[in-house]
């Protein structure tokens, strides 16, 4: 079943066509990667899907519903979570609290209930805490629960972002360069976690520079160049695709 259907998506900044008439689909339960050289429009594509940017034209259909033009928080409510290329953990909050934010859409307490500390809000908080601990256990960072998130090592912070995105219990998880700045061992850890998340039934769309990571874990790959899709296939075929090789290695060397 198609979970995400991107149709003819375009976005320009001034005269620059950052994303130009891009179409692809993401089937449920797979890891799909978007790759391409710098400036290919990967991040713009990501920001369009997550609602940070609004497309000039085209459609984004998620679970048979058009979501282009919705605000990021509305898209989150529909079951899409994301991580950030440049880490965006909440400072002054523990790992537990950071990941608890992933449970926001699954809880309800508002201003009045919070101020009055109603018994049901206390119960709800307890439930959120419990569920968050479960997520931390699954991701393997339960021992870090009480540490301030932004004081952790860089690689650990990436994993906390992953846990936070998973806590939302998304149907689709968008990962923006999850291995950026990580060493090989840390990259391997992240790869294992992403595969684990996919095996839990979460569909993953990933933008990544690290070729070895992408080739290892992706079920399918979309290649962008100058805002246009130039290939879409399984990793083995992408590796042999001449156009992709030309784009990546430069025309003269191909």
């Amino acid at each position: 079943m198609v979970l995400l259907d991107v149709k003819g998506l375009s976005k320009s900044f001034g005269g620059l066509k950052a994303v130009s008439n891009v179409s692809f689909t993401v089937r449920e339960g797979i890891i799909k990667a978007v790759i391409g050289p710098n400036g290919a429009g990967k991040t713009t594509l990501f920001n369009l899907i997550s609602g940070v940017l609004k497309p000039d034209s085209g459609k984004i259909i998620f679970k048979n519903e058009e979501i282009q033009g919705l605000e990021p928080f509305q898209i989150a409510h529909r079951g899409v979570s994301r991580t950030f290329q440049h880490l965006r953990l909440f400072p002054g909050m523990t790992v537990l609290e950071n990941v608890m934010m992933g449970r926001h859409i699954h809880s309800r307490s508002g201003f009045f209930a919070g101020m009055l500390n109603m018994p049901w809000t206390r119960r709800e908080e307890k439930g959120v805490r419990q569920k968050t601990f479960e997520i931390l256990e699954i991701i393997g960072i339960a021992d870090l629960a009480d540490k301030e998130a932004v004081s952790l090592a860089y690689g650990q912070q990436r994993i906390v972002e992953l846990a936070r995105a998973l806590a939302l219990e998304p149907k689709l998880m968008l990962l923006d360069e999850p291995a950026a700045g990580l060493n090989m061992r840390e990259t391997a850890d992240i790869a294992r976690l992403i595969t684990k998340i996919r095996d839990m039934g979460v569909t993953v769309l990933i933008v990544e520079h690290d070729m070895s990571l992408v080739m290892n874990i992706s079920d399918e790959i979309v290649v962008l160049s100058y805002g246009e899709k130039i290939a879409e296939d399984v990793p083995l075929a992408i590796q042999k695709n001449e156009e992709v090789i030309r784009v990546y290695l430069g025309e003269d060397d191909a």
Partner: peptide, 10 residues
């Protein structure tokens, strides 16, 4: 702390 991330969390 991080408005865009809060937004992304719904």
């Amino acid at each position: 702390g991080a408005e865009d991330a809060a937004d992304a969390m719904g």
